[in-house]
């Protein structure tokens, strides 16, 4: 009984255990070359494909180089892609008993989810930084202020936060890595049916109706609007503030719903 008294009274706090869980997730990312490569080139791949395969950087639209319009949209819409791994890892952790092990330890189990979100944010910051640098390298120029540029970057992180909960939920629902991968593919129609890659005006009516009313379109438009600064109104029809607020409302909605779902799935296990 003496040993229990010696080791049992202390308890890891929620912030401390969140950092510990996040550290494990970040290390496992950094030390798995496939993940690093994937996390780094995913966004970059889209940009480079656009630039060199479709020659997109050469076009202009209403007097502005098309690249200035495309890059921010691509990056915003690419955020969910960089987080698909979260669904897979979550499902695998469940499958292998890693989550059981964690939940059998005397720390607040909310840290298991919070740690994952924190780790996602770190990894996403890395991916976004690389993608932004490559964006500039292929000819993108910021028309908004530096502050607007930073806000655009921060907005992408907020979207990431929301999608982190989505993919955690999918991972917890799926139960194994392959099923999670399958479920996570649901993000593709959402992404490609958005304003990010194709202007919604060119879409058939039904698709257009869908594209105009879904979160990725509003996120892509918000980041675009910030990057275009003063040109936003002419290009997109509304001021940057309009798009930013819209995308933040989407993010908050997604976060609230999927936070609740993820917690429910986590508890049920």
């Amino acid at each position: 009984m003496t040993t229990i008294a010696a080791t049992g009274r202390r308890r890891a706090t929620l912030p401390a255990s969140t950092v510990l869980i996040a550290k494990r997730a970040v290390l496992s990312f950094l030390r798995t070359p496939q993940l690093v490569v994937l996390g780094t080139v995913q966004l970059v791949g889209i940009l480079v494909t656009f630039r060199y395969v479709f020659g997109g950087a050469f076009g202009t639209s209403q007097g502005l180089p098309y690249v200035d319009f495309a890059v921010p949209g691509f990056i915003a819409a690419g955020v969910p892609f960089t987080l698909i791994g979260t669904a897979v890892v979550m499902a695998e952790d469940l499958h292998t008993g890693f989550i059981d092990r964690l939940r059998s330890l005397p720390f607040p189990s909310a840290a298991v989810l919070a740690g994952r979100v924190l780790a996602d944010s770190v990894v996403l910051t890395w991916s976004l930084a690389i993608a932004t640098a490559v964006g500039f390298a292929i000819g993108f120029r910021l028309h908004g202020s530096i502050l607007q540029g930073l806000a655009a970057f921060g907005l992408c992180l907020v979207f990431g936060l929301a999608f982190s909960w989505v993919f955690m939920t999918l991972g917890l629902l799926a139960g194994n890595g392959q099923a999670a991968q399958g479920l996570a593919m649901l993000i593709f129609p959402l992404t490609f049916g958005s304003s990010a890659y194709v202007p919604v005006e060119t879409m058939p009516g039904w698709l257009r109706a869908f594209a105009e009313n879904q979160p990725i379109t509003s996120m892509a438009d918000a980041v675009r609007a910030l990057a275009l600064g003063g040109h936003a109104q002419d290009f997109l029809g509304h001021s940057a503030a309009y798009y930013v607020i819209r995308s933040l409302m989407w993010s908050a909605g997604i976060m609230i719903v999927f936070f609740a779902l993820a917690v429910a799935c986590f508890r049920r296990r």
């Binding site: 550290k23 290390l27 292998t96 008993g97 092990r101 330890l105 720390f107």
Partner: peptide, 26 residues
Amino acid sequence: LAGQYASVEPAMTGRENLEMVARLYG
């Protein structure tokens, strides 16, 4: 608890794995 599968983090060293669990024990 040690479950039916070895639930250690493959991308951490043996020592890191143990230290993480010890820290989580508080």
